[in-house]
């Protein structure tokens, strides 16, 4: 099976797509509908739409807007941001979202297990935002504002035990840096889990994604890689061909062995 490459679309409070750096400074990317249509044409493996202002502002998901957006998505679609209950997931599912990304709620085993019981584990994605590395690595929520004294690996194992079917492992430090993914954290977490790990954060080109896959991730996600081109970060929606990915995988293997 080919491993998945997942464009991540960050939605702000004004329903625009943006790209962040270290969860801070934002660059405007474009209109969500245009970008989704472009990704349809490029036949992407999957997309993840994350409303990054919903949680911190205490909002629930923007259901009306997601209904319109989901009707344009003919690819697998996961949504995160402001989900707090099974009821939120039921409403999202009704309008065409089949995977639910839990951030803050992912720290509550009861929410994870109740969503998993209703929709099956394959529908439950727990997003773990990581700051730091090695033994001192810890998790944050609320767009990085809230620190938790739990190690990402411990959090991932708890989420798996509670019924998560997939983990998005996101490096806050590398967000938007385009210098490569945190391979050590990816390796450490993915080899300890039975469920797939989706690595996110730090990639700026296809070779970075290939490195993340070699480190053990079952899939790699990125905003920058699929939104920018060149050193000057010109906005351009792109997606590599299968051939380009295969070539990058071969080069990455040669470099690591």
């Amino acid at each position: 099976m080919r491993k998945r490459l997942i464009p991540v679309l960050l939605l702000d409070r004004a329903r625009r797509l943006v790209k962040t750096e270290r969860f801070g400074a934002r660059t405007y990317i474009g209109d969500p509908f245009n970008v989704v249509r472009l990704f349809n044409e490029k036949e992407v493996d999957e997309i993840a739409i994350l409303d990054i202002d919903a949680g911190p502002e205490g909002r629930r998901p923007d259901f009306g807007f997601m209904k319109e957006l989901a009707s344009e998505c003919f690819m697998p679609l996961s949504y995160g941001g402001g989900i707090r209950s099974v009821a939120d997931c039921e409403e999202l599912n009704r309008l065409g979202v089949e995977k639910f990304v839990l951030g803050q709620a992912g720290l509550e085993p009861k929410v994870v297990s109740s969503v998993s019981e209703v929709f099956g584990s394959q529908a439950v994605v727990v997003c773990i935002d990581v700051v730091g590395g090695g033994d001192s690595a810890h998790c944050v929520t609320g767009s990085g504002r809230q620190r938790h004294r739990i190690h990402p690996l411990a959090h991932a194992l708890d989420a798996q035990a509670a019924g998560a079917g997939e983990i998005i492992l996101q490096s806050v430090d590398r967000d938007g840096m385009r210098s490569g993914m945190d391979l050590e954290v990816i390796h450490g977490v993915s080899r300890a889990l039975e469920i797939p790990v989706v690595a996110l954060g730090g990639a700026g080109e296809v070779s970075h994604l290939a490195d993340g896959l070699w480190a053990g991730a079952s899939a790699v996600a990125s905003g920058s890689t699929f939104s920018f081109i060149g050193r000057l970060r010109a906005v351009l929606v792109t997606y590599p061909s299968r051939r380009e990915v295969d070539d990058a995988m071969v080069r990455s293997e040669a470099a690591t062995s």
Partner: peptide, 10 residues
């Protein structure tokens, strides 16, 4: 290295 659930394109 295969995981369960099987998630992705085949």
């Amino acid at each position: 290295a295969l995981k369960v659930p099987h998630i992705g394109w085949s």
